[in-house]
């Protein structure tokens, strides 16, 4: 426990601050509690808050001795805190910077949560504006007949292909071969590649639609295939993905709100790069318009 506390940056900070303070006091002794002394007020709300925190941690109400310790600790912290502020020790401290920046970011997120639910028009506009989010990948619907490599004699394949082309049934010994269905409803190309392997999905793009053809190689064997639909990549119709659009809208609105607040706040500043080695693209991005 003690070791980890000694490694804690906050402790370094406090210790260093304490040393500085001691030095400063020694060099420039001051009157204590003079007429201009600052006031530290411990009001009821503050004390209640301290007691609540204590109770949450210790699972019981503080005794009078505990109360003394709570108040001692609070006043001690308050004094050091104020002195640290007046010495500017909060400046350029990584932990304090991070914490304050986080708080400010949280404020901008909270603002976006106050948003009204989106209207139908807003959702449609978002759907139209972000085809990257709502584009469906290329997909195929087809029937297939599988021959394992050891079974795939040219004659058998040709005979079956000829029979299928004139309306023949899938031979019984081919149905559900390797537990693979014969019929495949519209399925994205990547999912097909995962199910068949060996470049099967890529090969489907070259097959005619509506005619039995093949054989086509997969990770499993050779297939005769009837492609019934070859659906190119396309934007999903709004009506079919309305709920999904709404979820994405909400997600990106929150992100946008944060980004927008950042940009607005950034406008209040001029960023000067005095350091070397900053890429030109970054310089441009932060150049004031």
């Amino acid at each position: 426990m003690l070791k980890s506390i000694l490694r804690e940056p906050l402790v370094h900070f406090l210790v260093l601050g304490g040393l500085l303070f001691a030095t400063w006091t020694w060099l420039a002794p001051q009157e204590s509690a003079g007429p201009q002394a600052e006031v530290i007020t411990l009001d009821q709300a503050r004390l209640d808050h301290l007691q609540t925190l204590w109770t949450a941690q210790w699972k019981r109400d503080p005794s009078p001795e505990d109360l003394k310790a709570i108040i001692d600790r609070h006043l001690r912290q308050e004094v050091f805190y104020r002195e640290a502020l007046s010495m500017g020790l909060d400046k350029d401290d990584d932990i304090i910077r991070t914490r304050l920046a986080q708080k400010m970011e949280a404020v901008s997120s909270d603002l976006s949560l106050l948003m009204q639910p989106p209207t139908e028009e807003q959702l449609r506009a978002f759907h139209a504006a972000r085809p990257d989010l709502f584009t469906l990948p290329r997909a195929y619907a087809f029937r297939q007949v599988l021959y394992l490599p050891a079974e795939a004699g040219d004659e058998a394949l040709e005979a079956t292909l000829a029979a299928l082309r004139v309306g023949g049934e899938v031979p019984p010994d081919r149905r559900g071969k390797l537990a693979m269905p014969t019929e495949w409803a519209l399925t994205p190309a990547q999912a097909l590649e995962n199910a068949f392997g060996g470049g099967f999905a890529e090969s489907l793009s070259e097959l005619p639609v509506g005619t039995w053809s093949g054989p086509v190689r997969s990770g499993l064997g050779l297939h005769l295939v009837l492609v019934t639909e070859n659906q190119p990549e396309h934007l999903a119709p709004f009506e079919e993905v309305r709920d999904f659009v709404a979820r994405q809208y909400e997600y990106y609105t929150v992100l946008d709100a944060q980004e927008q607040m950042f940009r607005e706040l950034l406008d209040r500043y001029e960023v000067r790069f005095e350091a070397e080695g900053v890429p030109e693209a970054v310089r441009q991005e932060y150049a004031h318009p």
Partner: peptide, 24 residues
């Protein structure tokens, strides 16, 4: 935390494909 994660949802193709094939 109320804030979303650091990155936008990725892999929407896969998600959308599921959505569009009947699990709306």
């Amino acid at each position: 935390m109320k804030r979303p994660n650091f990155l936008p949802l990725m892999g929407l193709g896969a998600l959308l494909a599921t959505t569009a094939t009947g699990a709306l």
